[in-house]
Simulated scan of single mutants.
Amino acid sequence: MHTVEVRPAVAADAAAISQLLAAVIRESYTGRLEANAVEHMVGTNCSLSRIGAEIGIPGGAPSWLGWLVVTNAGGRVVGAAAGGVPGAGEGEVYALCAAPLFRRDGIGSALLAAVTERMRAHAAERQSVTLPCDADPALPFYNAHGFKGSERRLTRDI
């Protein structure tokens, strides 16, 4: 494992975030969800115009704290995360993914830590994530980071 540096996303990262998120959704949920549900998730969550607009929100807002990325030595985006504080004291992880070839390199943990710090700065005391399916492939990752709850809605104190 090497040192992982997380930084705020910039406009030039939008396409890479879109492509990474779409690839991870397809890899994670094909065979777990119906094909049309997987493509609906991709269409809804990975739109280049949406991600570009979200990156462009100056300074964010408590309900939207922005995109964070991790790049490899060549500058390629290999991890991305987004979160916010949609209610008093309640943080929400909206997206968190690492490229399959870079998993177990600490990228997900570094992104989660950075999202968590942003949430704490906006007075979040708890953090939640909603997973798309039961027995989600991300469930062991979140459990290892202290999230508990149903198989689809997990929370932890931060």
Rank of each mutant, 00 (worst) to 15 (best):
L111E: 13
I17C: 07
S150T: 09
D157C: 08
G43S: 13
Y142Q: 01
T3R: 13
A11V: 12
S49G: 12
A73G: 05
A88M: 07
A113R: 15
G146K: 12
Q19G: 11
A123C: 09
T155I: 10
A22G: 14
E151M: 02
A15C: 11
S128R: 13
E39N: 03
G43A: 15
V4L: 11
G60Q: 01
R103F: 04
G31H: 07
R104N: 03
S150P: 02
A88K: 09
T71P: 11
L20K: 11
A15P: 08
A99L: 05
N36E: 09
Q127G: 07
G59M: 03
V78H: 08
S109F: 05
G106Q: 05
V129H: 03
R118E: 00
A82T: 10
S150V: 00
T130K: 07
T30Y: 06
L112V: 09
L139F: 04
A124H: 02
V93D: 00
G83D: 00
I17H: 03
G43H: 14
R104S: 04
G149I: 00
I57W: 09
V85Q: 01
T116Q: 15
R32E: 04
G87D: 08
C46N: 12
I57K: 08
I158N: 12
Y94G: 03
T71S: 14
V69F: 04
V4Q: 05
N143T: 09
I158L: 15
L33V: 05
R32G: 02
M1L: 08
G66W: 00
G74M: 04
A11D: 15
T130E: 14
R76G: 01
A138S: 12
L33H: 06
G108M: 06
L65G: 02
E27S: 15
C133L: 02
F141D: 04
T3E: 09
N143W: 10
T130W: 09
V24N: 10
A98T: 08
L112Y: 14
R76N: 05
P137R: 00
E39L: 06
A135D: 13
V70E: 00
E117D: 14
A11R: 14
S18W: 11
C133R: 00
L96R: 06
V69A: 01
P132M: 06
A121I: 05
K148T: 03
S28V: 05
D13M: 09
A81C: 07
R32A: 03
G59D: 05
F147E: 01
E90I: 13
A138W: 13
L101W: 02
L65S: 07
S63G: 04
R50F: 02
E151S: 10
N143S: 04
C46Y: 06
F102D: 06
A124E: 00
A121G: 11
S150D: 04
A73N: 05
L111R: 15
L112D: 00
E90V: 12
L96M: 10
T155H: 13
E117Q: 14
A114N: 12
I51Y: 00
I55Y: 06
I25R: 02
A9K: 14
